[in-house]
Design a protein around this nucleic acid. Structure first.
Length: 438
RNA sequence: GACCCCAUCGUCUAGAGGCCUAGGACAUCAGGUUUUCAUCCUGAUAACACGGGUUCGAAUCCCGUUGGGGUCGCCA
């Protein structure tokens, strides 16, 4: 039998990292086994399941490269099948009708648990058992005639021929019910694999309050889908040995349940950021450029008048300093003449005694240069430093702050080259004027 | 509270009885390179929760304790 797994999110508008991690494991296992990975939208909550909410799921999956094999199944279209199953259970005596609790709401359909101890083998946690006394009958069709999660979930999995259910730890207790439902319906239950939770620094389930918790948050912050995928896959699973940076295909090839951790994992944003940097440096420059341009446009820093190839040159200068696409916005001075001056940088490098005088001297040297390449501006500054008996830092720092407003940034001489002589001189003049140098 | 699950450096993990003086990565700290930052290179700090067994031998197996977590809806 070929492996068939599914991701069955309830569309709420945003996709939590814990859920998408479950989707990743489903995808990984299906691809590993050469089987199929399916998508089922559990949209029975009509209030929250708006088209936009569904789209958020689709977007998140596409962004992470979680391609699925058949058209998505919308649970809301399967109600007839759910109700038919309930009828069948009623007929076979596995369910009964009752006004539960005598609430006056009317009769609902209740599933009768088998009354025996139950067990199932979890692919990750091993054999799990539950005593008959610890399990209660449960509602499968509400008194208003709508199917409850347990029924819908099981019937859909049955109809979709799902062979392996890979989901969060929080569903372990439900599994006894689901197994009983499958059997009562005359079917063999699928195999189950329950993933441990993703927790915060306090060991509690990772939530919005802990920072970025939704897939969309990471995308908006400028992360790469490939990096998030890699990081999340490794949060609870390891291929063994020292392997960390892997392609989706490599991970799929190596993925097995026996290498999935059974204890909760703490989400570490710092390590994700490092990993994103690793993916960023491996990214083809056109892609990096396109994404950074989008960020600049979004922040109103993009200017169509900028020369062709300008952004590419900026990115070359920024090099390893870009770990997230949004980092480009920190170098806004490349894109506008109206950049801000960082107070601390100004105090330390511009208002230091003699600094403005040295800046003026550098300006004079630069004004007389024809070749404004990085090599040329560097050589000229070295010459000036030697002539004055100064260190390079004495000259470099004031110039940097003068033309960018900040003391941190890429190699100065590459910056000068990217700006070009005219812009550099103009900025130096403006700065000299602003800080009162005669 | 009842039932269930879990437990290796700060974090993610390797480890399936001797290869462990417990390895890697991130983070941290210290040096080096450098015009700043980032990168890069070197090195360092840092863990088997505790107590009992089993065994010639235990991070690895068993039991207990402690600590964490999950579930107990006509939600999903």
């Amino acid at each position: 039998m070929t492996v068939r797994t599914r991701f069955a999110p309830s569309p709420t508008g945003q996709v939590h990292i814990g859920n998408i991690r479950a989707a990743i494991y489903n995808w990984l296992f299906a691809r590993h086994a050469g089987g199929q990975f399916l998508l089922r939208i559990e949209d029975t909550d009509r209030e929250r399941s708006t088209p936009a909410a569904v789209q958020a799921v689709l977007d998140a999956m596409a962004w992470l490269g979680l391609n699925y094999d058949e058209a998505p199944v919308y649970q809301s279209t399967q109600t007839a099948a759910h109700l038919a199953a309930a009828e069948q259970l009623l007929k076979t005596g596995h369910a009964y009708k009752e006004d539960k609790g005598g609430t006056g709401k009317g009769e609902c359909v209740i599933f009768r648990m088998p009354g025996t101890d139950m067990s199932f083998r979890d692919e990750i946690k091993g054999d799990l058992v539950k005593k008959a006394a610890d399990m209660k009958d449960f509602v499968i069709v509400r008194s208003d005639g709508t199917p409850v999660f347990h029924l819908a979930n099981v019937v859909d999995d049955l109809h979709m021929n799902i062979t392996h259910i890979i989901r969060g730890d929080d569903h372990v207790e439900n599994t006894y019910r689901h197994v009983a439902l499958f059997r009562a319906l005359g079917a063999t239950p699928p195999k189950y694999a329950h993933l441990p939770m993703i927790v915060n620094a306090q060991g509690k389930p990772y939530s919005k309050r802990d920072g970025a918790a939704y897939v969309g948050d990471f995308r908006a912050k400028g992360y790469l889908g490939e990096a998030l995928f890699n990081y999340l896959a490794l949060l609870g699973w390891s291929p063994g040995g020292d392997r960390e940076l892997m392609s989706r295909d490599e991970m799929a090839r190596l993925f097995t349940f026996d290498r999935v951790q059974s204890s909760a994992a703490q989400f570490d944003l710092v390590k994700l950021l490092w990993m994103n940097g690793e993916y960023m440096r491996a990214l083809p420059r056109e892609q990096r450029e396109a994404a950074c341009r989008a960020v600049l446009q979004e922040r109103g820093l993009w200017n169509d008048a900028l020369p062709a190839g300008y952004l590419g040159r900026v990115l070359d200068a920024m090099a390893e300093r870009i770990k997230l696409f949004t980092d480009i916005a920190d170098a806004g001075y490349f894109f506008t003449e109206d950049f801000a001056f960082d107070e601390k940088s100004v105090q330390k490098r511009l208002l230091k005694p003699g600094a403005l005088e040295l800046l003026a001297a550098t300006r004079t040297v630069y004004a007389g240069m024809a070749d404004f390449s990085a090599a040329a501006t560097e050589a000229a500054l070295r010459e000036l430093a030697t002539a004055r008996g100064l260190g390079m830092g004495d000259l470099v720092h004031p110039v940097r702050v003068a033309i960018s407003g900040t003391a941190v940034g890429p190699s100065l001489f590459h910056m000068l080259e990217v700006f070009g002589k005219d812009r550099v001189l103009r900025r130096m003049d403006k700065t000299l004027e602003k800080f009162g140098h005669r």
